[in-house]
């Protein structure tokens, strides 16, 4: 269970409060206007932003002081998810061993993860030689290998067309199912939230609201969400 305990995030001209829990294994769409703090919230959970007050707890354990890489988290950013000068295989190997080692067993696991994400045989390509969708798949393959209990997605598929994005969401669901991960995904699109199935968290007016059932929420949106959806 992820517990945001009286969490306060501030930056110049910006303030976000969150006091909520997310059950283990939940799929949560994080929705809200630009600049509301969706990315900042994910970055705080991942360990890139230090809270001004409050705690972030995973299964009762306070994550404060844990460096980003040591947290039970895999995160996909909006861009720069792969090192462009390394092969896909090498990029994935860094998810398995942070010292860059790559032995026979690792190669086999990487090949299997690539196969699983529809990238079979593309391990020796550089990211620039892949399409945008394939790059997203490679980043998801690495998340599959790391198998951390929290999977955070900060709009990594925003640049993809609708059909490709739907494919990616299905792959996210597959990866989450196989790793048992709890998923938090930032999106602007209520359709994405429905496809993800599960809960939706509204981030607006300086508050991250407790997640609610997506279909119920969209059927009868509260005022802040109505304002956002228009």
């Amino acid at each position: 269970m992820l517990h945001l305990d009286h969490l306060l995030l501030t930056e110049p001209g910006f303030r976000l409060e969150a006091d909520l829990t997310i059950p283990t294994g939940a799929h949560v769409a994080v929705i809200g206007p630009s600049g509301a703090g969706k990315s900042t919230l994910l970055n705080a959970i991942a360990g890139f932003v230090v809270p001004a007050a409050g705690r972030i707890l995973w299964n009762g354990q306070d994550l404060a002081g844990q460096p980003a890489g040591a947290r039970p988290v895999s995160i996909l950013f909006q861009d720069q998810n792969l090192f462009p000068h390394l092969t896909v295989e090498r990029n994935l190997a860094l998810g398995l061993a942070p010292d860059g080692r790559m032995d026979g067993a690792a190669r086999a696991r990487i090949a299997a993860a690539l196969e699983r994400t529809g990238l079979g045989g593309l391990g020796q390509r550089r990211p620039a030689q892949l399409s945008g969708g394939q790059q997203g798949r490679a980043a998801l393959a690495r998340a599959l290998l790391r198998a951390r209990p929290l999977l955070l997605l900060d709009e990594p598929f925003a640049a993809l067309g609708p059909a490709l994005k739907a494919e990616m969401l299905d792959l996210v669901l597959d990866v989450a199912r196989e790793t048992g991960a709890t998923v938090l995904m930032v999106t602007h699109d209520p359709g994405d939230a429905l496809r993800l199935g599960g809960l939706t968290m509204l981030v607006a007016d300086g508050t991250a609201h407790s997640p609610c059932e997506t279909s119920a929420l969209l059927a009868d949106p509260p005022k802040a969400l109505r304002d956002y959806l228009g």
Partner: peptide, 23 residues
């Protein structure tokens, strides 16, 4: 561009130097 990714993957200092910084 790549500090967050390197930290998210918890790269060791040596691996970061050899595989990311120097290239």
């Amino acid at each position: 561009d790549y500090d967050r990714l390197a930290r998210a993957l918890d790269l060791t200092p040596l691996a970061r130097l050899r595989l990311v910084t120097l290239p």
